[in-house]
């Protein structure tokens, strides 16, 4: 039988683990590995959000559509 204290410990440990990975390990890795660091800078400059999953959420899709429309002479 798991006690309430053990449940709260599990909750805190899991949350802390997740935050540790995303807020400490991953930023450290990103700064240390040149390709990841370049990626981070590039994303900061361009404003691209890789976490967006549908095309209407990504501004660059509209720009791409516009460029191709002009390039392929549809306007």
């Amino acid at each position: 039988m798991i006690t309430a204290r053990q449940r709260w410990f599990r909750f805190s440990a899991s949350l802390a683990g997740g935050l540790f990975f995303f807020c400490l390990v991953l930023p450290l890795l990103t700064r240390s590995v040149p390709i990841l660091h370049r990626m981070a800078q590039h994303l900061e400059e361009t404003g691209i959000d890789p976490s967006r999953y549908y095309y209407t959420d990504v501004v660059q899709v509209k720009e791409s559509e516009g460029y191709l429309s002009e390039a392929l002479g549809e306007q």
């Binding site: 691209i48 095309y55 990504v58």
Partner: peptide
């Protein structure tokens, strides 16, 4: 789509336009 845009942008502008 966001990851596609990111990957396309890393490669180049035209890659971004086509990929997206």
């Amino acid at each position: 789509t966001g990851a596609v845009a990111a990957a396309g942008a890393f490669l180049g502008e035209k890659a971004l336009y086509v990929a997206a």
